[in-house]
């Protein structure tokens, strides 16, 4: 089998598991809605125009939900001894990384797609815009890549799931700033050209951390 077909087989495996259990998507969806609701309560008390905090609220919800989804995805590999099986199979470690990261990207994007209409209703801000898809994609690629790497480590520590947000969120600070800023710009109607700087920063983060995670993943799963 070629490397691409193996990678695809691994992605298909994750999709099949997700289709049957709906574990990650359900958890991520319900959790992001909850974050949005709680932020609404929290802001409502003092913030006069809730629309102003919408971009930040959206990305807080996605980042936190992403952490849950990533934890689930990599914990599943550990629990059933799946990762050990994969290590024994004649598959490149980088192919395992690409497959896991791609599957995580897919699931987080899926959860985001379901949250967006609800967010539009709850916040009264229309986030169902074509240009926002660019920001969502660029932001989620970086989160999924470095998140897959760090979740693979967190899954094999004593602290388990608790450790991932502590490792992932500080590293994702530039990504979250750029994503929230770009989202805010688009909602203000400046267009993609108006937020080009933030999109470049997002792309730079993606390139740097996709490459670094790709190279480093082999050391994480090495036994």
């Amino acid at each position: 089998m070629s490397s691409w077909r193996k990678t695809w087989a691994l992605i298909a495996k994750d999709i099949a598991i997700e289709r049957r259990t709906r574990e990650s998507l359900n958890v991520m969806f319900v959790f992001s809605v909850m974050v949005v609701v709680i932020l609404n309560f929290a802001f409502e008390l003092r913030v006069e125009n809730i629309r102003q905090v919408a971009p930040g609220a959206l990305w807080v919800a996605f980042a936190f939900a992403g952490v849950l989804g990533l934890n689930r995805s990599l914990a599943r590999e550990r629990e059933d001894g799946c990762l050990e099986g994969l290590m024994l199979a004649p598959i490149d470690r980088s192919a395992i990384f690409v497959a896991k990261a791609a599957a995580n990207l897919l699931f987080i994007l899926g959860a985001e797609a379901i949250v967006l209409p609800l967010f539009t209703v709850l916040f009264g801000v229309n986030v169902l815009r074509a240009d926002l898809a660019v920001v969502l994609l660029l932001g989620t690629v970086g989160l999924a890549a470095v998140g897959t790497l760090l979740a693979a480590m967190a899954a094999h520590t004593r602290a388990r799931d608790v450790l991932l947000p502590i490792l992932l969120l500080p590293v994702s600070v530039p990504l979250l700033i750029a994503a929230a800023k770009a989202t805010g710009g688009l909602l203000d109607g400046v267009g993609l050209a108006g937020v080009a700087g933030w999109l470049q920063l997002l792309s730079a983060f993606d390139v740097l951390f996709v490459a670094a995670s790709y190279v480093l993943f082999g050391y994480v799963v090495e036994e």
Binding site: V146, L149, L150, P170, V171, V173, P174, I177, A178, K181, G197, W198, L201, A204, F205, L208, F209, A212, S213, L216
Partner: peptide, 15 residues
Amino acid sequence: IGFLDVPVVFMAIRW
């Protein structure tokens, strides 16, 4: 990973 992040964090916050 953490050290690679330093310049990116700095750029993001500087802007």
